[in-house]
Write a protein that binds this DNA or RNA. Structure first.
Lengths: 228, 228
DNA sequence: CGGCATCCATTTTGATACTG
DNA sequence: CAGTATCAAAATGGATGCCG
């Protein structure tokens, strides 16, 4: 299958031939925060059946965007990770995310699922390199039972699933509060005050955390309905 | 219709709900070089039928990404143009293009169509803002019977379909030669030497032209087949 | 748990014919 | 031209069932 192509000698069209089918870019989004297991991928992507997921993963493997790995001990379980080519789709995915933050985000709809990893990728989309000048710090985020870490090195950020080895600071927060943190005006300081979050570790690193991310001004027009 | 949604409270997924369907991003790509008429859009997108094209345009209108306009006199014919929200998809589309230039371009396949407008957008994707420091110039490109112009203002570039009002320099070139110019190592100077292109106008502006665009090193793995 | 195969109802698409 | 109507082919989704 998968013979459907735009048949255009155009870089955009060629890219969309590879990653433009339904679910594919969301699969890549999932893998951008680190390797994931088959079941975890499916759990994150409601509506994507096992058959189509297997087909999409095979496609990504065949095209050299992802590969099957065995997680390091003690896990030793199969998982999927991005190749270099796959990782390099990050700028494109983050641009789509930035556009969505500005033009399409609004309120969460009742039918919509949410996973903290998406917001962690949102951190990357909102990262302000200038604001991070001179900063070298590793933050750990514990959101309900999912842990993430972000490593900031000057103007660069890396945001991955899983605990940090040696975090400079740790933030523990409920998924619900984290959602408001990234999606709305709630600041980390406010979340801590109200008890929705708690933080520990290097105080200087924590003070800078709030300034590292900059949400684009929202111009979303239809915040509540899928608009037909 | 159009009720199919990922139902995820995620900026990337929301964006793909709006522009992730087949043809939609290519439609936006077409409009990024300026307003286009229904028929011209269809001519650029082989395989897209009139029915689907009409549906996609309606969708873009409903979502506020494009709108129907009447071309200024003497044309006075209907066309479609991007709104501000639509224009702002340019960074995402250009990132997809940059990825494609690096990882998916290779040789042109026998079945593939090509339109100069795509390469003009490629100029934007390859534009090197640093190299354009201090430059303010308008270039006109005449590629077979299609004319384009690029306005460079320091680190900014604008690349649109249609003639320039007052170009500083004009380059006339065959579509075939233009293709090699952007897709391969051929330089403008070489093209002019071999007679494939001719240039006129401000000499200083023309001399800088060749340095304004930087192709990413190609890592394309399967240059010739749609790979199943 | 990971992953493929199968069957089936529903959508989406592609191609073409047709109308103002 | 611009756009609708129509229909066949393909992709999707959902539910299983199976096998290591």
């Amino acid at each position: 299958m998968e013979q459907r192509t735009y048949n255009q000698y155009c870089a955009t069209a060629r890219t969309l031939d590879l990653v433009g089918e339904r679910w594919t870019l969301l699969l890549i989004r999932e893998l951008l925060t680190g390797p994931k297991r088959f079941g975890d991928l499916q759990a994150s992507l409601r509506g994507l059946g096992t058959g189509l997921l297997a087909a999409r993963l095979k496609h990504l493997e065949r095209e050299g965007l992802a590969h099957k790995i065995t997680l390091p001990p003690p896990a030793r379980t199969p998982a999927y990770a991005l190749t270099e080519a796959g990782e390099e789709l990050a700028p494109a995915v983050l641009e789509l995310a930035r556009w969505g933050l500005k033009w399409a985000m609004g309120e969460r709809r009742a039918t919509e699922t949410f996973h903290p990893g998406w917001a962690v990728l949102g951190l990357r989309a909102c990262f302000d390199a200038e604001a991070a000048a001179g900063l070298h710090a590793v933050y750990e985020f514990r959101i309900d039972d999912e842990w993430f870490h972000a490593r900031i090195d000057d103007g660069a950020i890396e945001a991955l699933h899983g605990p940090a080895q040696r975090p400079d600071a740790t933030v523990t927060i409920s998924q619900e509060a984290f959602l408001r943190l990234t999606g709305q005006g709630l600041t980390l300081a406010e979340a801590i005050e109200t008890g929705a979050a708690s933080a520990s570790g290097d105080t200087r690193a924590l003070r800078r955390l709030g300034d590292l991310f900059r949400l684009p001004p929202s111009h979303a027009r239809n915040p509540d309905q899928p608009s037909s």
